[in-house]
Nucleic acid binder design. Sequence first.
DNA 1: TTGTACGCGTTATCAC
DNA 2: GTGATAACGCGTACAA
Lengths: 353, 353
Amino acid sequence: MARKRSTLKDVAQAVGVHVSTVSRALNPHTRHLITDEIAERIAQASRALDYRPNTAAYSLRTNRTKTVGVVVPDITNSIFPPIIRGVEDALLDKGYATLVVNTDGRREREAVILDALSARGVDGLVVASVQREDAAIGELAGQGVPIVTVNRSVDDPSIASVVSDDAAGIRMMLEHLTSIGHTRIAAIAGDQNLSTGKKRHQAFVLHAAALGLLAGPVRFAGAFNEDDGARCMGELLDGGGRFTAVLCANDRLAIGALGALRARGMRCPQDLSVTGFNDMPMVDRIDPPLTTIRIQQYQVGFMAAGVLLERMNARGEAPPARSVVLPVELIVRGSTAPAAASKPAPRVRSLTR
Amino acid sequence: MARKRSTLKDVAQAVGVHVSTVSRALNPHTRHLITDEIAERIAQASRALDYRPNTAAYSLRTNRTKTVGVVVPDITNSIFPPIIRGVEDALLDKGYATLVVNTDGRREREAVILDALSARGVDGLVVASVQREDAAIGELAGQGVPIVTVNRSVDDPSIASVVSDDAAGIRMMLEHLTSIGHTRIAAIAGDQNLSTGKKRHQAFVLHAAALGLLAGPVRFAGAFNEDDGARCMGELLDGGGRFTAVLCANDRLAIGALGALRARGMRCPQDLSVTGFNDMPMVDRIDPPLTTIRIQQYQVGFMAAGVLLERMNARGEAPPARSVVLPVELIVRGSTAPAAASKPAPRVRSLTR
DNA sequence: TTGTACGCGTTATCAC
DNA sequence: GTGATAACGCGTACAA
C-alpha cells in the first residue's frame, strides 16, 4: 500500500551483503550469528530505507500469521469490549494483531465465522461465544488450534478457559440479601446451555439451600437480554409466589426486570429488591442503581491472551489446559434494600392478561 | 494451523490437470476460461479436499491482504462498537477481515498504531480517532492508502468521511428547548480540535443567534467524558450566570453534568434542563432519562465500509473524496422540561471552594 | 482451452 | 560468519 516498500534485497544492496545476512541481522533470534559491525550497518541501512518486513512473505514461509481471532456474540454488548481490549493490549506489543468477529450467538453463523478465521490462518483463538457443548470448538482444538475461551467455558475440560468466579458471585449476593433480611428469593436464570447460566443457577440452588433460604420461583431466560428479563419478571409476578427479592443471572436481565416492575406500578427496592451480575457500564447511573457483582472483564481478556500465547508458543506438545478463575466483587447499590419485615410478597394482577 | 491444508497442487493432482488450471477454475474472475466439465471436476475435488486458498500466498502475489484496519480511540467507549459492527457486517461477505485497534486518543500512540497497521499491509483504513488536523492521516492518504474517517472528519476535504449531521442535531435541540420556553441556554462544548466538538459548538452559536436566544456561558471540555462534564457543570454553576438549560456536546458530558448537578442538591429537569448528543446505550434508563440526539452509528460504519470499498477497488485514480452526512433524530426524554417561567436561574454557592 | 515458467519476500538449510 | 539456493502457495504473462 505504501508507495514502494523496501525489501530485504534493497537493504542488502545498500549495505553490500547478501539478503540472508540481512535477514539474520534483523531477526533477534539469529542476530548473534552476525558480526557486530556489519549488523550495525545493516540496522542503519534498514532504518534509512524504512524497511518493514512483509507480513505475507513471512507468513507464507513460517506458517504463522501473528494474528489471533477474537470471537464474540456481539461487540455492541457492552460486556465484551473490555475483554477485547484486554486481549489486544496484551497481544499488541508481542506483534500480534487481533481479528474481531461477531457470531450473534447463532450456531451456524459461528461455524461460518470460525471457518473464515481458520482459512485466514490465525495463530490462535479467543472465544467468548461458546456454549457448553460446542462441536465446532472441539473440532478446531482437536486439530491443534490454540484456543482459550473467555467468560464462558465448555464442559470439556481439555479446552483452556479464563472465567470469573460465578459461584462465588452468586454466594456473595445471596449472603448480602440474607444479611438484609430476605428469606424468600426468586430468580431469573440464564440460558442453561451457557456455562455462565448453568453455573450461576447451580450456585443459586446450592447456596440458597445452605443458607436456609426459600429459593422461590425460578424463570429461565432464553437469552441474556432485557426483553427476556422483562418477560420473566412478568411471569414471576403473575405466578403469585411469595418473594421479596429477585436474583437475576446478569445485569441485562435485571434491567429488563426493573422495567417490567415499573410497568406494573411497583417500586424497586421498596416493593422488591433486584440484583444483577457483571457490573456493566452505566448500571450505577440507572434508576435505581443496580446492586450487582463486578467481574474483571479487562483482566479476563488480558489473562486469556497470556494463556493463549503460552499455547501458541508451545512447540510440539500442547501444555495442559489451564482453567483460570478470576475473583469477583459484590457491589451494593440502590436496587437492594432490607426486606419489608411484615409485608407479604407482592401479589399483583397481571395487566396484560 | 489446521492439520494439513490442501493446496492448489493437491487439487491439481487429484483431478489430473495443471495447478494453473485449478487456479483459474477456482477464481470467479478467470473461471470462464475453463471448460465447464473440467471446471466442475475441479470444483468437486476442491470441495472433497476441503481446499482453502492460502491467504499469505495470495497476499504475497497480489499485494492485497483483504484486511482493513479500524482505528478507534477506545473500543470500550460504547459509541464505537456499533460503528465497528457496521463496518464488519458490510465487509465480511466481501471477504474482508477487520483489524480493530485503539489509540486512546493519544497522538503518538496513533502514529505507532497506524504504522503497525500499514506494516501489515491493510488494504484500507476506517478511522474514528482523527483530529481536525491530522498529519499522520494526511500522510497515509498521500501515499495512496484508501481512508475513510467516521463520525469525525479532518478539515482537509480531500479525505473521505461519513459523519452525522452535527449542525442539524444542535439546531433541533435548540428548537426543542425554545419550544418549551427556554431562552437562556448555557453550553458544555467539546474539544475544538475534533470536528464534532467544533461543528456542534459552531452550530450552537449560529442557531442560538438565529433563534434569538441568549446563548449563555460556555465551558469547553478537554475530553468527551463524564469527569469533564462534571467539572464544566460545576464551573457553570459557580459562574453565577443565568440559564435554565445546559446543552452538552455529547451524552457523556451530559451524564457527568447530571452528576455534578445532583451533587449540589439541584434537580434535573425541575431546576435545570440538560441535553446530550449521540443517544448512547442506556441513557434512556438513567435518572432522569436523557433528552438527546440519536445518530445512526451502525449505519455510519456500514456506509463507511461502502465508501472504503469503492476506494479500494478503484484502479489507478482515486475517486473524488466522498463526504457523507447522515441525518440525526431528536429524542425527547425526561431531562428536559419547560423552563420555570418566573424562577430565576439557579445561583448556588459552590460546595467545593 | 490448457500448460509452462517465473516471481512475489521471506526464512531455513546447505556450503564455503 | 556469510553467501548461495530452495521452498512456501499462488497468479499471470506467454507459449502451445
